[in-house]
């Protein structure tokens, strides 16, 4: 069943380039296969049969940062892992987004100590924080939907300004 049956014969559809591009980005957002700790197990659950993230075009977890758009930081980030995480982030192509999944990635969680970064936003810029220890797969999916909303609101002008700053 195609979109035609739903909408009738529309002939020509006009829209803005921005919204088409953003629509495309939301529906084929490839996350990076990158688990750190307990939250990664719930991330796997979200991928598995019961929750099935592929409904949102996310069934493909890429192990290489070069091929992914979304980094889900699933778990606690230790002082030894921080630099590695940053390098992985730097290797991802623009545009890229980050979800901090779980309390540890968001704010350190129960581990307020010498070994853990108190929030992954000290290492990479974060777009969406998902609370929970671990967050339920539904919560992660909600986080993903939130990031979709955010992407839909982005404009080329913002990108242009961002790159002017970075270059």
């Amino acid at each position: 069943m195609g979109v035609e049956q739903k909408l009738g014969n529309m002939g020509v559809v006009t829209t803005t380039l921005e919204s088409v591009v953003n629509w495309g980005r939301t529906n084929a957002m490839w996350p990076m296969l990158f688990g750190l700790a307990c939250c990664a197990i719930e991330m796997m659950s979200a991928q598995s049969s019961a929750y099935d993230m592929s409904r949102f075009g996310m069934e493909l977890m890429r192990a290489s940062p070069r091929q992914s758009d979304l980094m889900i930081v699933a778990g606690r980030v230790s002082k030894k892992m921080g630099p590695v995480l940053r390098r992985l982030y730097d290797q991802m192509p623009e545009p890229k987004w980050v979800i901090a999944m779980g309390d540890c990635a968001s704010c350190g969680g129960v581990f307020n100590n010498y070994a853990i970064f108190q929030g992954v936003d000290e290492v990479v810029p974060v777009d969406v924080f998902v609370a929970g220890c671990p967050p339920r797969p539904e919560a992660l999916i909600h986080g993903v939907m939130t990031i979709h909303e955010k992407v839909k609101g982005e404009s080329f002008k913002q990108y242009a300004e961002k790159y002017k700053q970075t270059t």
């Binding site: 750190l36 700790a37 778990g75 606690r76 230790s78 002082k79 030894k80 892992m81 590695v84 129960v110 581990f111 307020n112 100590n113 010498y114 070994a115 853990i116």
Partner: peptide
């Protein structure tokens, strides 16, 4: 050591009941 969390040290700073969450 890429996931070294300091659990042992952190448990020393909590009471017996609270250390269990670690």
């Amino acid at each position: 050591g890429y996931l070294h969390t300091g659990i042992e040290k952190n448990m020393e700073a909590k009471t017996y009941q609270k250390a269990e969450v670690m």
